[in-house]
Design a protein around this nucleic acid. Structure first.
Ligand SMILES: [Zn+2]
Ligand SMILES: [Zn+2]
Ligand SMILES: [Zn+2]
Ligand SMILES: [Zn+2]
Lengths: 170, 170
DNA sequence: AACTAGATGATAAGCTTTATCATTAGATGC
DNA sequence: GCATCTAATGATAAAGCTTATCATCTAGTT
């Protein structure tokens, strides 16, 4: 399956009693034209919509993200920034995974059939039905490293705040 | 390194200007005596403390979790339940990963050197310093499956709520 | 013992997400 | 096309978890 057309999205939604609305179509379109490797949070998505002059409420954004993720059109990502991210979902054999810098929050994607296979195998070994698997690799980019930083597990404000307060002992 | 003793924890904290307090010692002890494979959220941890008769504020719980994660004593987990989980951090070659049921939120751990190696390799290939890597596999357990459920990407209340409203089309 | 800087606890504020509900508008069948 | 039924929208309030503030207390050091 390539990406959804308005018609195929409508069919998919209707099949389950959901409806295709202009808002949902607009939102899908944004994800479809998003540069490869980008993810959007609910708020980022809403900002884009507002910038485009659309008048879609934040409520609708959240609802649409939920429904789309539920239908398998979008994939929900947990990247440790205090909010969820969404991206177009690709068919099973082509999932990708993420490198996340805990300093600047930039993310990089990569693919790995091997990981997908491990995930599938592990789920089946336990007798479960696999829905999705995501390898998230937390890193620090070289820039951040040079700012006196080479640690094990900081996150979010913990690292940002504390590093300013408290540089490495010599 | 086995686990921390009060003395080694104190040394580690002091090295960076942090202090060892009775509260921090108590909290570390709880994690150390937690059954293998359990994780605690801030609130769960606080509940345990209260149940034990300790008088530690929620503020202190959050602060301690942050500091401990920052120091690498605890590992912070993102398991898609709307809040973070913490567990004792183990030295690098022995990280483990998680299977999460999106229905009942139960989690299962497993280890995989292979995944750790992939993570390390991937991070180094990009020239980054690896902090941690976590493979999270989202699944549905057999129980949930039998309740008429065999889908692609639901999460949280989306799936719980919507499935009640709207069973599979025949 | 005294001193200094970090930690605590109580409380308020913040941010993301979810719930409510009156109103609007798809989908279906005639 | 029109009527009907039910889902979706938008505005707003509420919830849930996390972070900020600040006066008070205390660990670590001299
Ligand atoms: Zn992505
Ligand atoms: Zn970075
Ligand atoms: Zn675990
Ligand atoms: Zn389950």
């Amino acid at each position: 399956m390539a990406s959804h057309t308005p018609a195929s999205l409508k069919a998919l939604l209707n099949q389950r009693g959901f409806r295709l609305t202009p808002q949902r179509q607009t939102i899908l379109h944004i994800f479809q034209t998003l540069p490869q490797g980008n993810h959007l949070s609910a708020e980022e998505l809403h900002n884009i919509l507002v910038a485009q002059g659309e008048r879609i409420s934040l409520s609708t954004v959240y609802r649409t993200l939920h429904v789309m993720a539920f239908m398998g059109v979008l994939r929900e990502l947990e990247l440790a920034e205090g909010h969820k991210h969404y991206e177009l979902n690709s068919p099973d054999p082509h999932q990708h995974h993420h490198l996340v810098c805990v300093q600047c929050n930039r993310t990089l994607e990569f693919e790995s059939d091997l990981i997908d296979r491990i995930g599938t195998k592990q789920a089946e070994a336990e007798g479960y039905h696999l829905l999705d698997c995501q390898l998230t690799i937390y890193i620090v980019c070289p820039d951040a490293m040079q700012q006196g930083w080479s640690h094990s597990l900081p996150r979010d404000w913990v690292c940002n705040r504390m590093m300013q307060m408290r540089p490495d002992p010599e």
